[in-house]
Amino acid sequence: MSAQTDRYTIAVTRYFEAWNAPDAPARAKAVTDAWTPDGTYTDPLADAGGHEAITAVISAVREQFPGFAFRLTGSVDGHHDTARFSWELVSEAGGTAGDSTPVAGSDVITLDGEGRIRTVLGFLDRVPAAA
């Protein structure tokens, strides 16, 4: 694995740490560790800038899907300061495929020189009807 590939993988690992943090203090710290202070998160359902707003978006999703966690599907691909990856939200209790993975998508992130996230552009491939 090259240093550049490590950079993308580390950034995506931090990204998932933020999304999967078990409580508000851990989530706020994980967002601060992963994103630049002026970082953004945008998907079809949310548009947030700065640590507090990004933390609020993640917290709202975690409240909507208790007992679920985000996980990487496939590998992280990147070049220059940009990486892309796919993910799914999975039930930590298991279940059938339809019930256990209600949300899935792909994200494109840009990084600063230190490997922190500047922007996330999220694309949702599967969303529950109530979302």
Rank of each mutant, 00 (worst) to 15 (best):
F70G: 06
I58H: 09
I117N: 05
V108K: 00
R84G: 03
G105E: 07
E88P: 01
E88F: 01
I54M: 02
E88A: 10
G74S: 00
V57Y: 12
G94F: 12
I54P: 14
L89T: 07
D112H: 11
V90R: 10
L89Y: 08
H79R: 11
E63V: 09
G94W: 11
H80R: 07
G74R: 00
D99Y: 01
A97R: 09
A69W: 00
F85Y: 14
W87A: 04
L89R: 09
G78D: 02
G78W: 07
T82G: 00
G78C: 04
F85D: 10
S106T: 14
G74F: 04
G113W: 11
D107Q: 09
P66C: 09
A69E: 15
S106I: 06
F65T: 06
Q64T: 13
I58E: 11
E88N: 10
V57D: 13
G98A: 15
S100C: 01
V103P: 12
F68H: 10
D99H: 07
R116E: 03
S100G: 14
V57T: 14
F68I: 02
R116Y: 00
A69N: 10
E114M: 06
T110R: 10
I58C: 08
I117D: 05
A83T: 08
P102D: 09
G74P: 01
V57H: 12
A83R: 11
S91G: 02
P102K: 02
E63Q: 15
V61G: 05
T96L: 03
G74L: 00
F85I: 02
T96S: 15
G105P: 02
P66A: 10
G74C: 04
D112A: 06
S75Q: 08
D107W: 09
A60V: 05
V76P: 04
S100K: 14
A83G: 10
T73V: 14
S86Y: 01
S91M: 06
A56R: 13
I109P: 03
T101F: 05
H79E: 13
I117W: 07
T101M: 13
G95P: 13
V57E: 13
T96N: 12
I54V: 12
A93H: 14
L72Q: 04
H79V: 10
F85K: 07
R62Y: 05
A104K: 05
D112E: 05
A69R: 15
D77C: 01
D81M: 02
F70Y: 08
T73L: 02
A60W: 05
D112L: 08
G67Y: 08
F70N: 04
G74K: 00
H79N: 11
D99M: 12
